[in-house]
Design a protein around this nucleic acid. Structure first.
Lengths: 127, 127
DNA sequence: TCAACATATGAACAATTGCTCATATATTAA
DNA sequence: TTAATATATGAGCAATTGTTCATATGTTGA
């Protein structure tokens, strides 16, 4: 029995003659593996929400407790807590517990750099 | 009549005593305005999907037509076209029409930089 | 003009996301 | 221990997103 991959009709795929085989081939060769690109997308997803961007931005100067962030953004504690969990999972922020409070801070200097790059792109767009 | 802001019950907001007013204040002062942060989130949203990341990555080396990209990613032409439209709207790729084909290329060197920053972050995470 | 090809796009649908609500966990002080 | 406070989290829901399908648009050559 042949591999199923070879038998697929692939009606949806662009199988016609317009393809440039060498271009496709060399593009394929220089691409990072899918796992890496998936992780990259997961990382940038964290930057792709206004609430999370605001949280990270708020932490640029100093650490803040959950309550501070909720107050600063004018949002509920639960919403902030949920987002902080996602940011923690992505290793973008870290927690420090002190008494009843949890103090969050940035976990990576890349956050700032990525943020800056984004700002540059946006500001250039204004011509 | 007092400002409504002052009268809101704000049950959901963290209104209790745990807030650090100076920390909140100085964080608020150094934050870019909401419009900017919203645009930033919109930009990073483009990097937050595996298909779009793959498309941008495919264009690092040279321009490709829609059909090439569809072939390279093993996806339908329509799906790619839809994503390219989003990337175009975000000024991340540009089109060049030649005959029946549309050739896409990166529209901004920031794409590469943002991509690199993301990679750095991911690779550091492996300890 | 017509047929073939390459791309673009609207509608529909399933999957994902972000928030709210209620409640659980954890810490502190009485 | 009990009450109060700060945070975390599961369930539910509305909104958003990414793909497919069908079709429209645009280009080329006969």
């Amino acid at each position: 029995m042949a591999l199923q991959k070879d038998n697929l009709p692939n009606e949806d795929l662009c199988e016609v003659a317009c393809v440039h085989p060498d271009a496709v081939k060399s593009a394929a060769e220089q691409m990072p593996d899918l796992d890496t690109l998936f992780s990259l997308a997961e990382l940038f997803k964290m930057f792709g929400d206004t609430t999370r961007i605001r949280i990270m931005c708020a932490l640029f100067e100093r650490e803040l407790c959950v309550c501070d962030i909720a107050e600063l953004l004018g949002m509920g504690q639960s919403a902030i807590s949920h987002q902080l969990r996602l940011l923690r999972t992505a290793s973008l922020v870290r927690v420090r517990r002190e008494g009843k409070s949890s103090y969050y801070s940035l976990d990576d200097e890349h956050v700032r750099l990525i943020f800056e790059m984004g700002l540059n792109h946006i500001q250039e767009g204004r011509n």
